[in-house]
Simulated scan of single mutants.
Amino acid sequence: MKRVTTLAAVTTAAVLALSACGGEKQSGAAAPAPAPSEQKSLLASPLGDPIQLAALTRESTKKAKSSKVTMESVAGTQKQTATGQGMYDGENTKFSMSMDSDGKKLEVLFVDSALYFKLDASDKAEMKTDKSYVKISADGQDPISQMLGKMMSKAIKDSDPSRTLEQVSKAGKITKSDQVELNGELTNHYVVEIEVEKAIALIAGEVGVPFPADVQKQLDAKLKGKNVTIPTELWLNAEQLPVQVVSDQTAFMKAMGVPGDGVAKTTVKYTDWGSPVEVTAPPADQVGDLAEIMKKAGGR
């Protein structure tokens, strides 16, 4: 089913972007912005060891667990944008996101360990359903849920900076760090090189769902001996919370044989840390069973 597959692919990209750096900030009234000299004294020196940095951020991520987020993904001439809000709290993680992909609006909810896609009139016609949402969950019986459910659930639940940096320590390294001003705020800026082959193996191993043998064979053939990396930049504020994450997938896309010579890059920005997040699952009678819908639609 083309539409559901497209929805799943776009949402997976969004989830992975979100999991690149979730985190928390202390709640309460905002303090006046310090002068640049005061900012300098409040901002600790950047670290070169991702394990040490992960440990430093761990306590920060146990505080107020929410933010607003915007994402922009560019691949050649194609552009996707998204806005949303999320609470990053392990099993209680939830978020809502509105995406624009090739002029098509997509609305997604993640709550109670399941993803819900909102369907418009054309979606309902293609899927032959009158339901307003379809659901993808880790325990779903349809092929898409079985393929993506566990991976998406784990990516979302692991969405905090300390967890991300622990993964970076296994699949990459910090190659540069400095202090720069971003949007009027002094931040610690890190440049990270993530090794694609190690990252893929790490994700598959932790999720416990290996790629199908033919897919893994194709990945191995395309990546072998190329030492492909995904350069990633992170900006963290004085509270060790992400302000911006930029991931450049250009080399990876070219290695995979994706046509075109354009840049493939994702930028995620975080604001309003500690803001309230209200996300609830749709009423059960408005949610369609994806396996049944796929059968009716003939698996298109």
Rank of each mutant, 00 (worst) to 15 (best):
A213Y: 06
A199Y: 11
S96Q: 13
A284R: 06
V287M: 05
S145C: 10
Q26E: 13
A281N: 02
L115G: 02
D158C: 08
I200R: 07
S132Y: 01
V10D: 02
V246G: 03
A284L: 06
I203Y: 06
S101L: 04
A75S: 15
K104L: 11
L219H: 12
A29V: 09
D214F: 06
T83D: 14
V74W: 00
Y270V: 02
G262R: 10
P283M: 05
M1E: 04
L148K: 04
E193P: 01
T5A: 13
A251L: 10
Q80P: 01
V4H: 00
A201G: 06
L47W: 01
A54L: 03
K40V: 12
V134H: 00
R163E: 13
K217H: 13
T57K: 06
P212M: 13
L119E: 01
V69P: 00
T12W: 08
K124N: 11
M71P: 01
A251F: 07
I144K: 08
A121T: 09
T70W: 01
L16C: 08
E195L: 07
H189K: 10
L236K: 01
M147N: 06
N227F: 04
Q141H: 11
S37F: 06
A199M: 14
R3P: 00
A20L: 08
A155N: 04
